[in-house]
């Protein structure tokens, strides 16, 4: 079988970014926290591939360490929100009627809280930090996954083999676990990839506004925020974290598209 080009490219990019994030736990080209005022704001060269920042730290090392933060928060938020949303979605599809309306209403309410709004609210409650960021991003994932999994599960419930399973006396929970979940899994996995990309963008936005992880934990969004002052003097400080975000999100999107092409030959709807 020939793999879609987007799948190969997306998987490669994602693997590199995840690899860099994991590698940063044990090794970076330089210590991402080591200041060196003499070598501050240096343009990229052989010693510092991405240059140095206002206090002389190696930008490439901070980017690698930041990958751990960004990917970690994005993946955790997506996993938690995705699991909760999927659970809600399949429950709505299995129960129908009142439960379904309730879930959809709940979805509507959650959907009114994009990550930045949740973060502003939660920030008022418990201050900025990784937990605030993960919660704020995760909350918005719930309605997204609930909507997709409900729609997918409803289609499965209409199939003949579900009727057969019902005749055999299996209850809703068993049918959902044995037939519905395995069949909607491919769609959920596609969404996990794409939504992780969106979560990276959200995390970067929150960090940019100072609502993400606190210093000294490195983060791409905060790097961009700090780069604003040196926009004219050191454009590499703007370019490096932005490219890191864009490439990571692009990789995850391509991965998601590729997986969709692989699992759904009819080509699913965009979005």
């Amino acid at each position: 079988m020939r793999l879609p080009k987007s799948l190969i490219l997306g998987a490669a990019i994602t693997a590199i970014m995840v690899g860099a994030a994991v590698l940063s736990r044990v090794w970076t080209p330089a210590d991402p926290t080591a200041m060196n005022i003499v070598a501050r704001l240096q343009a990229p060269d052989a010693a510092h591939w991405f240059g140095t920042d206002p206090i002389g730290r190696d930008v490439l090392s901070i980017i690698m360490a930041g990958a751990w933060t960004s990917l970690g928060i994005a993946m955790l938020a997506t996993a938690i929100g995705g699991a909760a949303g999927t659970l809600l979605g399949v429950t709505a599809a299995a129960r129908g009627g009142r439960a379904e309306r309730l879930v959809m209403g709940f979805n509507g309410v959650l959907f009114a809280f994009p990550p930045i709004l949740s973060a502003i609210l939660l920030g008022a409650l418990m201050g900025p930090g990784a937990v605030t960021a993960i919660t704020a991003i995760g909350v918005f994932m719930v309605p997204v996954f609930a909507r997709i999994s409900r729609a997918a599960a409803i289609q499965i419930w209409a199939r003949d083999y579900i009727s057969a399973a019902r005749m055999a006396g299996k209850n809703d929970i068993r049918i959902t676990a044995e037939h519905v979940l395995p069949n909607i899994l491919p769609q959920i996995i596609v969404q996990l990839a794409i939504q992780t990309g969106l979560a990276i963008l959200s995390e970067a936005g929150l960090s940019f506004l100072g609502m993400g992880v606190s210093p000294p934990t490195p983060s791409w969004g905060r790097m961009l925020s700090e780069s604003q002052t040196y926009l004219a003097a050191a454009p590499h400080l703007v370019l490096a974290p932005g490219l890191a975000i864009a490439v990571t999100v692009l990789g995850l999107n391509l991965l998601g598209d590729g997986l969709r092409d692989l699992t759904d030959p009819r080509r699913g709807q965009a979005g």
């Binding site: 990309g197 780069s227 975000i245 864009a246 490439v247 999100v249 391509l254």
Partner: peptide, 17 residues
């Protein structure tokens, strides 16, 4: 593909630049 992947505040910074 590119436009979806790029954070808008980064685009803002580049436009300013």
């Amino acid at each position: 593909q590119m436009g979806i992947a790029v954070p808008n505040f980064w685009i803002g910074l580049l436009l300013i630049l």
